[in-house]
Amino acid sequence: MKAAVMNPQEGIPRYVECPNPVVSSEDEILITVRAAAIKHVDRSKASGTHYSSEAYTLAEARVIGGDGVGVLADGTRVYAVGVTGMVAEQAVIEKDRMVIVPNHLDDATAAALPNAVIGAAMALRFRADMQPGDTVLINGATGFTGRVAVQIARRYGAKKSLLQVVILNHCRPFWR
């Protein structure tokens, strides 16, 4: 099986041939991976700056990617968190950590969305304790996660979105 592996000493992932992942309990299942997201944590691990980078050495290179989209043996397309790395042809996932991907969503989008959605939703709901009817200012709403946050705020019942103010102020020269 082909996979992207990394170790902190080299600092960049390599695409190599490696053994197929093995299901080790009845709570796990094998999927054929179709898309995986590479996030900042993956880059940190690859460069050796993430706290978990000390857990393995040059001889213990690992397949990268913590989540992605794949197909089960029965053809069901799912988003899942991997037990093994997800930037590979196959990966092991936990059965209770997967959701079916809607047909209208392509694989790459389905793999990329959860990082932004979870980050934005947790910030709004748990950190800011957003309630229906609140006015929400999302600074930096011109980026991907910010744009997702605006949509989530509306879904959570935000009375008013200050996205337009942020975009206008962001585009104006600072000296005016």
Rank of each mutant, 00 (worst) to 15 (best):
V69G: 14
A121C: 11
G48Y: 01
L168W: 01
A37R: 00
P8S: 05
P13S: 02
V136E: 04
N7W: 11
A59L: 12
R172M: 09
G82R: 00
I118K: 10
A73Q: 14
S47M: 10
H50C: 09
N115P: 00
G65H: 09
Y79R: 00
T49K: 13
A4K: 04
V148A: 11
R172Q: 11
I118C: 14
R172V: 03
E17P: 13
D106N: 15
F126Y: 15
R147A: 15
A128Q: 00
T32C: 10
V63R: 04
R62L: 13
K39H: 15
Y156Q: 01
A55C: 09
Y156A: 02
M1W: 09
I152L: 05
V5M: 03
V23L: 12
Y156F: 15
P132A: 04
R176V: 14
N20D: 15
E60M: 10
N169W: 11
N7K: 13
D67V: 02
V63E: 08
F126L: 14
P19V: 07
G68A: 02
V33C: 07
P132Y: 07
A36M: 06
V78L: 02
V81Y: 11
G68M: 09
G146Y: 01
V41L: 04
G11C: 03
G48C: 04
A112S: 14
A158I: 00
P13A: 11
D74P: 08
Q151L: 12
R43N: 09
K95D: 05
S44M: 14
L168F: 00
V22C: 03
I138P: 01
A59T: 13
H104R: 08
A111L: 06
A158D: 00
G133A: 00
V148F: 06
G48D: 03
V99S: 04
A55F: 12
N20G: 08
V23F: 06
P21H: 05
G119P: 05
V33D: 01
M86Q: 08
M122T: 10
P173M: 12
F174S: 15
N169L: 14
R127K: 14
E54L: 13
T49A: 14
D107F: 00
D106E: 13
V5C: 03
G157C: 00
S53Y: 07
L105G: 02
D106K: 04
R77H: 04
I38L: 15
A120S: 12
G66R: 07
L162G: 00
A59D: 15
K45V: 15
G70D: 06
L137R: 01
A149F: 02
L168H: 05
K95Q: 09
L72H: 05
A80C: 08
I100S: 09
L113M: 13
T76E: 09
V23W: 00
V117Q: 10
E17V: 14
A3N: 11
R154Q: 14
A128L: 10
V166M: 03
S24P: 03
S52P: 06
A88Q: 05
M98T: 06
G143S: 05
H104W: 07
E54D: 09
Q90G: 10
C18T: 15
V148S: 00
G75S: 03
G85Y: 10
A112F: 08
P173T: 12
T49I: 14
T49L: 13
M130S: 04
A112R: 03
E28N: 08
A120F: 00
E26G: 06
